[in-house]
Amino acid sequence: MAATTTFEGYREQITHYAQTMALGQNGPAEAGLQAGMPADRVGMFTSGNLYKRFDKLKDACEMLAEGMEEIDDLVKAYVKEIPLSAYDTGCTDAERFLIWISEKADLTEEQKDIVRCQRSRHAVEFVAMKQRLAHVRFQELLSMNERLLDELAENGKLMVHLNPIHVWSRFETKALLDEEDIIPATVLFFPVGNDIRTVVIEPECEELIRLLDQSGVMRVKDLRKLVSAGDQEQLIGLLRDLAEMGVIALG
């Protein structure tokens, strides 16, 4: 493509170069090179970029790759079919790859659980990106849990804050679970600091978390009013467990 003199022409030129080079198709950019420039330099550029992308995806999907012989071919096919999207963070490419591979490959039930797990981890990051302030505030509150846990049974005025960044999923196999876990298992993904934690959630605990999710911040005494006298001890035990895991913060 010859040098253009209009802005629309420039848009067309760069769009054409970018969209083809992003898929490793070098012809259009080669045709636009300065006279005397070796054409294979475009190939060096695009293959280097695709190779880096391939490596990042392999790293991001390491768990899925275990025992999956065709993974390299699938990643190669993906990078040649689907270009990296503008402003990609790495996480977004891995997420799109997992959607793509779920449609293209015949995954086992165990592999499907691994995909669910990885997509849930991505979802935690996506939610945190949108709710940065809520994440940072909650993590600050979390640092007070250790001190306030001692007051949990006695101080009804304590406020219970649910970690605003949490994602539910369900595992159908034991691929990622302990032997004693019952399947299907409800699992919760949430951050503590900049780590993402995963825990299997029992039904009574799930009910409490969903209640907190709907109600927002609640006082311990108000939560106590919702359970019978006989279940008070169990409620405090659940709150203690959730606080120790980082699912809730006391304040």
């Binding site: 003199t5 970018a18 550029f45 990609d88």
Partner: peptide, 27 residues
């Protein structure tokens, strides 16, 4: 350099040099 075409477009993964033209200079 440029790493993408437009906002909803594609990302190259690394920066390519622009054509050193007047219109590229303006952009």
């Amino acid at each position: 350099g440029f790493t993408r075409d437009g906002h909803d477009g594609v990302e190259l993964g690394h920066f390519a040099p622009p054509p050193y033209t007047q219109v590229a200079l303006d952009a």
